[in-house]
Design a protein around this nucleic acid. Structure first.
Lengths: 334, 334
DNA sequence: TTGAAAGCGCTAACAC
DNA sequence: GTGTTAGCGCTTTCAA
């Protein structure tokens, strides 16, 4: 641990600057010198002290990714992608879990731990439009998700309304007219649920299908159990249903479970569509038709955008970047 | 970003040492001085530069967690837990994905990026016993998983053999005798598959049930599709089966899918048990009986053990720490 | 109780 | 082409 530039320089019989030059691939070095230095580096097993380098350069090569919880499949897959993209850009990623808690999210934004990173990719679930002021942070940040629009930072997100509308239209085009929704939120002005509901209603309206509150399942959490419970409630009401739009895949998978327990066949009796295109959607029974919201593009764009800001593009106005989506047609809705 | 100790000291009319003392809660400071300094800190919005502090202290407060892929539910849940435990200990976690690739794993161990961290929690899937030499790294490391025993580092893992035996016995106790296995590996001397197979065979032997290679499904990968494919193959052979032991939950869930497609009822016709106790096991249809291998304990112990090593317990011999397991009884095997 | 100054290991002017 | 040197912002002896 104790080998420094000085040690290498001494052994090689040169100055530390020369060693530094070799390490940083400075072009004009005599081959002989370079070899001497490289031999010394090898002999001593020298590796640069990144902390010192960071102190000099003011950069760390580390970015933070803050999200609700890795146990949620959507965020795990998002994190996997962000880490891959960051690695390709020569960065490593510190993952922070906020538990979707507003206070913890706000605390994180002010945390001195972030000083150790070059920037933050933040997927909030607790803070909302009323907290935009707290988002005006003194370091590069890219926002993900639907909680914040017109914030003081770049924002990479998906076309929720259009994609949800397309999902609903996918069902309508297959003759379904009694399309239940699982995962609606009450009293939320801006969020995935609200936006996706808007797309749903647009599709109904365009097709001349009346909106029926009886087949709208409300859940605060988007876990599988909530999807199953919500579906059961709708069925218990005796409401007629020939399709289900799960506002995310996890809810849709939960709903499928409840449908099968109620001896309803998917897709024959009830077609099901989800949203997210989790890996799991390919392997459920039946496989889940869903919306691919462009997660890969979102991850890549978030990293690229953050890097631009880190590189000094601090003046440019905050941008909103929207991913393209597509419907992944599988067995649950054909 | 540019506020330093010097700025604070100048504003407060004291030396930087005094400011430093205040920040680090050095006991003997006159209240007046402290107040002056705190006022200056507040006015300037000073936060310490962690990089500089790290350079001095030689510690970073960052640990690395290297695992195959966050898209795999088991590792996502493990990471979630490790991050929580690390946070409780005042550490943040850099997550690195190796893709279960031996070369990438070996490269990671030597990566200078690790110099930015105080230690590594490493869950290898590519390197094996033949690579123990590479594991003798010059920084604190804790190993997870089954790939390496008697390595040069502390090792936190689960009781694979005993737990697999208990899982098999759970099925036997419920009258099952034709217990298929999904996920066996060929030509692997040490790994989860091998150990769990050992427990399976022990249970059969103890119950006087003959081992039948016809109902052993081999897969290299442990994804859901492999579980389904492997199950289908066994069924296609015409082999008689009244239970399935998925060597992990994902395989078991895949196998359940194949069973239902073959019009076999779970658990009536075929009981199914898994291994891992993923969140998902509680929400599948039917819910999955499985082995809880003690993931939470493993995460907590890995962090605690790493911290001990970081704190300087470098002399002590490497230890192997084993988690307690338990069977989570759910619908798929009653 | 507080201040002065050295130095953690590195990079980047600037000199030679 | 290579060496000297001044910091990056902080902690920490050692004095005062």
């Amino acid at each position: 641990m104790a080998v420094t530039l000085h040690d290498v320089a001494r052994l090689a019989g040169v100055s530390i600057k020369t060693v530094s030059n070799v390490i940083n691939d400075y072009p004009h070095i005599r081959p002989v010198t370079r070899e001497k230095v490289e031999a010394a580096i090898a002999e001593l097993g020298y590796t640069p002290n990144l902390t010192a380098r960071n102190l000099r350069s003011g950069r760390t090569g580390v970015i933070a990714l803050a999200l609700p919880d890795l146990s949620l499949a959507y965020f795990a897959e998002l994190a996997a992608q962000v880490i891959r993209e960051a690695e390709a850009a020569g960065l490593v990623v510190v993952v922070e879990q906020t538990g979707a808690d507003r206070d913890r999210e706000l605390e994180l934004l002010r945390s001195p731990r972030l000083k150790l990173t070059d920037g933050l990719i933040f997927s909030p679930l607790g803070v909302g439009p009323e907290d935009v002021a707290a988002l005006d942070v003194p370091y590069p940040m890219v926002l993900l998700g639907e909680r914040i629009f017109d914030g003081p930072a770049d924002h990479v997100t998906m076309r929720n309304v259009e994609a949800a509308r397309a999902a609903t239209e996918h069902l309508i085009a297959r003759g379904r007219r009694r399309i239940a929704v699982i995962g609606a939120h009450d009293g939320e002005s801006m969020g995935s649920a609200t936006l996706r509901m808007r797309g749903y209603r647009q599709a109904l309206e365009a097709a001349g299908i009346p909106y029926d509150d009886d087949i709208i399942g409300r859940t605060t959490l988007w876990h599988r159990a909530n999807g199953a419970d919500s579906m059961r409630e709708i069925l218990a009401r005796g409401a007629e249903v020939d399709a289900v739009f799960g506002l995310n895949d996890t809810l849709a998978l939960g709903a499928m479970r409840a449908l099968r327990q109620a001896d309803l066949r998917v897709p024959e009796d009830v077609a099901v569509i989800g949203f997210d295109d989790l890996d799991e959607a390919q392997f459920s029974f039946p496989t889940l038709t869903t919306v691919d919201p462009g997660r890969e593009w979102i991850a890549r764009t978030a990293v690229a955008t953050l890097l631009e800001r880190i590189a000094g593009k601090t003046d440019a106005a905050p941008r909103t970047l929207l991913a393209d989506f597509r419907i992944r047609e599988r067995e649950s809705a054909v």
